[in-house]
């Protein structure tokens, strides 16, 4: 099939960007979305033009590197009825039709400055983890694994929350650019495990505080995040986070600095 792409081009954070139109021909339905961009880039290189930069690595939907807005939707989620929510690298061209026009843009959020074209800086998410998204268990201190029992339902629910890949689609999709779904997934994962209890209150207040410092917006329960999340992280995590946060504040927990 033949497609018309309108791609956001921006040479660096300091320079202005704009949409540029390209034609790609002979796209196979079995190609992944990123393979289609590879084909475009090969063509651009041979024509002496600058290829389009985009983050990617595993290309199997697990590393969280990739992610672009496709026709206004993060990872293209929500555009196709029959397609499960997924990452950009796992979207295949069979979801498109010959002659389609596709708009491709980077994640847009104050906390995610553009590096070049479609690649953005998501290090703010790492700093949220740094502020408390862990259990303090220095190497060598662990007791025998079976000395801690974890109910299967808690472990399964913790796992569901823990599958967040840190891609940032939730932020990109949210009209407030809130990172609440991301933060809640870690708060809930660790909060459901018995090992996570001692730091539970501090964790939630510190992570929320850091999230604010990074310039992410507040959550107003719109739900675009969950609808765009490739891992189907549910909004219920946000309610649980709010519940934990209230409890923590009531118990007197306050952010570190």
């Amino acid at each position: 099939m033949n497609l018309k792409l309108r791609v956001w081009r921006q040479r660096s954070a300091a320079e202005k960007g704009k949409m540029v139109t390209y034609q790609v021909t002979d796209v196979s339905p079995d190609m992944s979305f990123l393979e289609m961009l590879d084909v475009l880039n090969e063509q651009l290189i041979l024509d002496g033009e600058d290829p389009v930069s985009f983050d990617h690595d595993c290309r199997e939907g697990i590393c969280g590197s990739c992610g672009v807005m496709i026709n206004g939707r993060a990872h293209g989620n929500g555009l196709f009825d029959d397609h499960p929510q997924t990452t950009t690298c796992q979207l295949h061209m069979r979801s498109f039709k010959d002659g389609d026009t596709i708009d491709i843009e980077p994640w847009r959020a104050t906390a995610f400055p553009v590096i070049k074209d479609l690649a953005v800086d998501r290090s703010a998410l790492d700093r949220i983890i740094q502020s408390g998204g862990y259990i303090s268990a220095p190497t060598g201190t662990a007791p025998e694994a079976h000395s801690i029992l974890v109910a299967k339902k808690d472990s399964d629910a913790a796992f569901d929350a823990a599958t967040c890949i840190g891609c940032g689609a939730c932020v990109a999709a949210c009209p407030n650019a809130s990172s609440m779904l991301f933060t809640s997934s870690k708060v809930v994962h660790l909060g459901l495990m018995p090992q996570g209890q001692p730091e539970r209150n501090d964790r939630v207040v510190n992570m929320i505080h850091q999230q604010d410092l990074e310039g992410f917006g507040g959550c107003t329960n719109i739900g675009e995040c969950s609808a765009s999340c490739p891992k189907g992280i549910s909004m219920e995590n946000i309610s649980r986070l709010n519940h934990d946060l209230l409890g923590a504040l009531r118990a007197g927990a306050r952010p570190k600095s």
């Binding site: 862990y134 268990a137 190497t139 399964d156 913790a158 796992f159 994962h189 090992q195």
Partner: peptide, 8 residues
């Protein structure tokens, strides 16, 4: 070690 870190 991994269990102590909360690996589900």
């Amino acid at each position: 070690q991994c269990v102590a870190q909360g690996v589900p």
